[in-house]
Design a binder for these strands. Structure first.
Lengths: 248, 248
DNA sequence: AAATAAGTTTCATATTATGAAATTTATAAC
DNA sequence: GTTATAAATTTCATAATATGAAACTTATTT
């Protein structure tokens, strides 16, 4: 492992929505590194456009990241194909739809689209949640034993009132997911939020992602509960078909 | 400058929409580096989630970039505030709207939204164009002498039939932009494309970005030419107000 | 089954990053 | 306007680390 590259990554990760602008000393302090080392790294990153130097000699994330990000999107053909289908889903209900993929024991949201009237929800494109505590994550765990193994190794911890923290209970829940073909998260990840997710299959039949619809418990369990469930499943199936999966 | 960090950046930049998946040897070849060196760097980047290792031992861009990108967005409050206003703009015409900002002699597109029926255009979020050859770029040059100086130093080259390649002619054009408050690019950047841009001002009155509408020459110069111009200017003004700029 | 090509690992060496200290720059206090 | 303070930046000798040739492993093709 190349240390300076690792350190450069840590520096980039220091920036967040809460702290979009940082000085050299702040960064050095956060990472426990010498200010001169961070300065060398920061200068390099500025030169590459990964960071930008402000007039008052502080730093922010640079445009290079926009460029790179764009190519992340491009390469995931799931992305282009899914957007119109997910838009169609949220046009028919009130809530927020996500597409999640598994990475290192967590679910990463690669897409998030909300309907106009949706109540805000604490996720964003690129953000992560423990897989076992989300509807999308549980779908991915239900159909990928490797993912489940990795998740168990990392341990389960309470995220919200109903988070499943027991391995046996989780396995039971995942069996249920496989039986019905969708997963539900009811107050498992964020208090007051209910979500329902269904699997997206690649041409080879592997569950590579999951799409969900999330909203307030009251709305999601309301009168059109059944319709929401059918729509989420239909959306997932349509995306799978777009990706070349042929139902058997 | 820290060499390994620079090299890591080059590796990330190897990936594109045309080549989303690359092997170690390919990357080493592209960059003229030894495969073992690139492998060390690639492994590190994989560990950090910047790259991902495919099943067939090839590599693609990783989720970390999504995470980082998100924070680039967050920090530019211009982004959140502008989106609804730009959406409103494209809803009334057929074309593609951009917001561009200046960086190192070029305009970087930080936002791109197209109306449903818009003809495709060769830009994407994060992509760059020479400032002097675009409507957004010329707005930024017209109101920022530093930008102009930097641009002139880098030289002007023909991009499309009408690109301004003469410094004096460029200065005249920029004067006109200041006089009328908007800029036009007619076949200056891409053949067949006509765009009109107006300045976005920060609370302090500095021109920090430009918004444009681009489309086929025939449409943009058609009957609602005047209305388009007024709408672009109005959109720019509204965004400026959102950013705290108070007209004098 | 052999051949080929690419990915990966190892390790001695040369290169390069490191951090203490000095210097410069900007900001705050007087 | 001067001094004080804090942070950013630069320098440079030294310690740490990246480098690439070569060996090895894995996968694919003939």
């Amino acid at each position: 492992m190349i240390e300076s590259v690792k350190k450069a990554c840590y520096i980039i990760s220091c920036f967040s929505s809460e702290e979009p602008v940082l000085g050299n000393a702040e960064i050095a302090g956060k990472l426990g590194m010498s200010p001169s080392t961070t300065h060398h790294l920061i200068s390099t990153l500025c030169n590459e456009g990964v960071l930008m130097r402000d007039k008052d000699r502080r730093y922010r994330l640079g445009w290079k990241l926009l460029e790179w990000n764009n190519n992340v999107m491009f390469q995931q053909d799931i992305y282009d194909k899914a957007i119109p289908l997910v838009k169609d889903l949220i046009s028919r209900f009130i809530g927020t739809a996500h597409i999640g993929m598994f990475d290192k024991g967590e679910v990463v949201f690669v897409l998030k689209i909300s309907s106009q009237e949706a109540s805000p929800i604490h996720t964003y494109i690129g953000s992560r949640k423990p897989a076992y505590a989300t509807s999308t994550g549980k779908v991915l765990l239900a159909y990928n034993n490797d993912y489940l193994k990795e998740t168990i190794e990392r341990g389960l911890s309470q995220q919200a009132p109903n988070t499943i923290t027991n391995i046996e209970k989780l396995k039971e829940d995942l069996k249920k997911v496989r039986d019905v073909g969708y997963s539900i998260s009811n107050n498992e990840n964020s208090t007051g939020t209910y979500a329902i997710a269904a699997p997206i299959l690649s041409y080879s039949g592997k569950t590579i992602a999951a799409v969900n619809l999330a909203g307030p418990v009251s709305y999601m369990q309301g009168s059109n509960q059944h319709m929401i469930r059918q729509s989420v499943i239909k959306t997932a199936d349509s995306i799978s078909k777009e990706l070349g999966y042929i139902e058997v």
